[in-house]
Design a protein around this nucleic acid. Structure first.
Length: 563
DNA sequence: ACACTCACGTA
DNA sequence: CGTACGTGAGTGTA
């Protein structure tokens, strides 16, 4: 049963168009949103937009549960790699037009504006031989109805060209574009819905670490000075040291005989017993981190009156394709996680993918012996048995193979690993070698990993170090990026299959999902989440040879132990 | 004003 | 045991 593609495009001035084979509507955004809701309800629609962030915000705000979409920007990021993905760039790539010939925007720059005849007709929006109008789709663009309809038709044409191009890349790339597009829509919902927070607990945890909520600037300075004094009291005569300046801290430490190349935590840790100021400084850093990054200003700025922590989300980064999030959603210290709590009448279903990266390696490399190991709940157990070593040794050897070890330890086991799983290890070696040669790679789902642009500045003066860094990046990216694809396919499936239970995905953390759900539906949500993994893994790998496992539990606070 | 380094949190 | 990301403070440059 074919799914009819329907373009939905919106302008910054509040108008929109819906265009399909047998449909053409243009008008005020709110009318079009209603129309889209009806069409979505009727089913069998795949929405096409240049990017969800630009075109679909009104649909997200209206709570329309889009199930299928094609995000031209996300498809372009798969196809070409990197992060740049304007409609103009995506159009040119999909039609194999020379990137260097892209016309420059005229309205974004005052000088251009003065030298441009503003009455000139817009460039053709959708002619196969030409580029898109560089101003189309920008925030200051005001198209007439006919132009907006043409813009929507161009999106449809672009999506179709991308689909052909992706189909030529590999057997999984069109499906990957579908799930990347769904993930991008999910990102808008994540930003809209936020992460449920127990504000009282958050306040208490911040107070425990950083002191009570300051009452004005003077109080803030006093609390800060008190915190500083607990370190500086250990070094009489140096009370004026600025603890926030690494250079001054280094001097302070040197004055008590602690001579270090830098003042990082893991460098200072061994010197805890050398002088009491070291421990005091490390404690100060922890408190200062909470006070500055995750303190009261953070709480006040990013947690709304509805007790939801909000930030912007992106479906992929510019390197391997993992999701990113702002405002601390992806790096909230574990000490603050008790503050992430389900709201009344609700619970969280939390699940993470166990040993995701070695399992992904088995899938992407097609190593049958390694795939056999994934059928165990604990992958390292059969690997240890095959290598004739203890589990911890097997684990270190596998991780060393995937991430590139430079210091000894796993040497012998690593050789056995090469012998036992030559296909998997060969895949990693090939990725490393491609990195050295600056040859682009593709993830399992077809995302292009570019090596011509990344790492240009890292150790640029040392060619060998730079090569090795590129090799490690390449080897890591094909695994990390492929894992990200499976994760997003899983997340999109969970979103689609648990919506009727009132479930809401509220956090995606690389291999972990947090779903907020009415408590009476918790067990069913958990079951569907596990089922979703089986289904999406089978679709993604195209077989059942590689097993993926989810560790799922029903909890009230994020900090609660797994069970 | 902006870019950079340092430091550190997460996976 | 590597890679990636986002954040904030200090520092140096334009």
């Amino acid at each position: 049963m074919p799914v009819a593609p329907l373009a939905f495009v919106a302008t910054a001035d509040g108008r929109a168009a819906i265009v399909g084979e047998h449909l053409e509507v243009v008008g005020p955004g709110e009318d079009l949103v209603q129309r889209a809701a009806d069409l979505e309800q009727a089913g069998d629609v795949r929405w096409v937009w240049w990017s969800g962030r630009v075109d679909a915000t009104a649909l997200v705000a209206a709570g329309i549960p889009v199930t299928r979409c094609w995000d031209v920007a996300e498809a372009h990021r798969l196809l070409v790699g990197g992060w740049e993905a304007s409609p103009q760039v995506a159009w040119a790539a999909a039609h194999r037009l020379d990137r260097a010939g892209l016309p420059a925007p005229t309205r974004g720059d005052l000088f251009d504006f003065h030298t441009t005849d503003s009455s000139s007709a817009p460039m053709a929006l959708g002619s196969p031989g030409g580029y898109l109008d560089p101003d189309a789709g920008t925030a200051t663009w005001h198209p007439d109805d006919a132009t907006l309809v043409a813009w929507a038709r161009a999106a449809l044409a672009c999506a179709q060209a991308q689909e052909s191009a992706l189909a030529a890349v590999g057997p999984r790339s069109v499906a990957a574009a579908h799930s990347e597009s769904a993930a991008a829509f999910l990102c808008l919902e994540l930003a809209r819905d936020g992460l449920p927070v127990d504000r009282a607990t958050a306040e208490r945890l911040i107070a425990d670490a950083a002191g009570p909520r300051p009452d004005g600037d003077a109080d803030l300075r006093r609390i800060r000075a008190d915190r500083d004094r607990r370190v500086l009291s250990h070094t009489p005569g140096r009370e004026s040291t600025d603890l926030r300046s690494p250079v001054q801290v280094k001097e302070l430490l040197a004055s008590v005989g602690v001579v270090v190349p830098n003042t990082r935590k893991w460098v200072l840790e061994p010197f805890r017993d050398a002088h009491p100021v070291v421990g005091a400084l490390l404690e100060w850093r922890r408190a200062e981190r909470i006070a500055t990054t995750y303190g009261y200003p953070w709480l006040d700025t990013h947690v709304g009156p509805d007790d939801r922590l909000r930030g912007e989300w992106t479906a992929c980064d510019g390197a391997a394709g993992r999701m990113t999030a702002q405002n601390g959603l992806h790096n909230l210290p574990t000490s603050l996680r008790p503050a992430v709590a389900a709201h009344p009448g609700h619970v969280f279903v939390r699940a993470d993918l166990g040993q995701i990266e070695p399992r992904v390696l088995a899938a992407v490399s097609g190593d049958e012996a390694f795939a056999a190991a994934t059928r165990a709940d604990d992958l390292y157990a059969p690997v240890a048995a095959a290598l004739g070593v203890d589990r911890p040794v097997a684990k270190i050897a596998v991780l060393a193979a995937m991430y590139g070890q430079r210091s000894g330890a796993a040497g012998e086991a690593l050789k056995d690993l090469e012998r036992t799983y030559p296909v998997a290890m060969g895949y990693l070696d090939a990725a490393y070698a491609a990195g050295l040669r600056r040859e682009p790679l593709r993830t399992f789902g077809g995302r292009l990993i570019r090596l011509d642009t990344v790492l240009a500045d890292v150790a640029a003066e040392d060619a060998a170090a730079s090569d090795a860094a590129r090799g490690r990046f390449a080897r890591n990216a094909v695994i990390q990026g492929s894992a990200a694809e499976l994760f997003k396919a899983w997340a999109a499936t969970v979103r689609a299959t648990t919506r009727d239970l009132g479930a809401q995905i509220v956090l995606c953390l690389h291999d972990e999902l947090l779903v907020h759900v009415p408590e009476e539906n918790a067990d069913e949500t958990k079951a569907r989440l596990e089922r979703a993994l089986t289904d999406s893994a089978r679709r993604w790998t195209g077989s059942t040879q590689v097993r993926f496992v989810a560790d799922a539990s029903v909890i009230r606070r994020w900090s609660e132990a797994k069970d």
